[in-house]
Nucleic acid binder design. Structure first.
Lengths: 223, 223
DNA sequence: ATGCGCTTGTGAACGCGTGCACAAATCGCG
DNA sequence: CGCGATTTGTGCACGCGTTCACAAGCGCAT
């Protein structure tokens, strides 16, 4: 039973968007209340965890009944800062960046791609979804003008740190990094990293273990 | 000082690919040993954690010197099951799937895109990077023929569960899911989820908190 | 109004992961 | 050959997150 705007456990924050997605789906299919058990199933977590997470937001459930979907959506969106549509800059419109620029999930879930940048002058001017690609040297002026605080980095790893520095000095304070490298940034800047190959490598580890098990060994066929 | 092939802490497994990437970078730039401090910096973790992680793989460092990069790369690749190049199927060559099919990071880090599928018959036959798109109805025969055990799901959320079921019954045991929905799968199947909008929403939360703080309130300007 | 069934909210115990701090081990040099 | 500098490997304590289990609260039927 905490106040809104308080600091939540990081693990809870990471799950709230998933709850939000599930709630929207329930709302779209005509529900207007849901039990912790039902929402937990829809979000792929267990019900005790869900209740504890939601209890941090203040009380939006009624015992014996469940949670009111409408107000709960509103509360989660408020806590996540999604009541405003946030402007996002995307740097690097290569293979992956091009797809991200057109990704409908961003626009449908609270964000607006406000600017596209690339270092390759032959790509500058190209339009993606009606938005023109700008040169990275325009980052300072455009980021300030549009008050962009979040950036998506889809450049090659070799360029990522330099571009990140430029974004940060232009005022960006959150970065979603798709480049396979670690960024060093000031404390006030948040970075989240998504490395697609790493995800596959983690799956590969589990595949490797499974195939070791069918060999009937507890350890491994080795050397 | 554990044996190879043993079960590692999940948190350690998730970091090994990052160590691997950093090690390859060091090897490419002419190093052949590295201290835990140096590797930890390159991988963005602290050195005690790195040493404990590596100690689970058996001892590949020498006190007073550091780690031998070559053997360590070999050991991590072995543990992650990357000594073979694993075949991966990709389902859904829409906006995002198309980019993933061309993503160089998959091929350069131990994987081979072995088949592309889509439900849209107008896309079937299209070639991406020299590989033809097949219809999803071909999943059973192709997955078995190519012994594919890992699949990447880049379909719309509405199709994801159905496709996942087909993949699993064809023999897939690991799924990387980009669709914004939860999949229900048998225990023996591993699923990792990547939801790009969720990552941005988590950043949005932190942005929201930052702006609350500059307002000078501990709580929040509310209602 | 009262009792019953259902569901939330939470105290408490547990387990995992992290980080500190130090002993053990190796190298190089005199 | 021994000593000091350096770096690994790890025991230990701490904190966060998860899960269980149950009391408290709400609605509904009678």
């Amino acid at each position: 039973m905490s106040q809104a705007g308080l600091d939540l456990p990081e693990a809870t924050v990471a799950r709230l968007p998933e709850y939000l997605r599930a709630l929207h789906h329930l709302a779209d299919t005509g529900h207007d209340t849901v039990s912790s058990e039902g929402l937990a199933n829809a979000a792929g977590v267990n019900s005790a965890k869900l209740r504890k997470d939601l209890s941090h937001l203040g009380s939006y459930g009624t015992r014996g009944v469940g949670y009111d979907i409408g107000p709960l959506i509103g509360q989660i969106e408020y806590v996540l800062g999604l009541t405003m549509r946030r402007a996002v800059a995307l740097v690097g419109v290569g293979n992956l960046g091009h797809a991200l620029a057109g990704y409908a999930g961003f626009t449908s879930r609270g964000f607006r791609i406000a600017a596209l940048f690339d270092a390759d002058t032959t790509r500058v001017g190209e339009k993606i979804n009606g938005l023109a690609v700008l040169h990275v040297s325009d980052i300072p002026v455009v980021v300030k003008r549009e008050s962009i605080s979040i950036a998506v980095l889809a450049t090659p790893a070799s360029a990522a740190q330099t571009v990140a520095d430029q974004l940060i000095s232009a005022g960006v304070t959150s970065i979603l990094n798709f480049a396979p490298c670690v960024l060093s940034v000031p404390d006030r800047v948040d970075v989240r990293k998504v490395d697609l190959a790493i995800e596959l490598q983690i799956l590969s580890f589990h595949e490797h273990r499974k195939s070791a098990h069918v060999n009937g060994l507890n350890g491994e066929v080795r050397k």
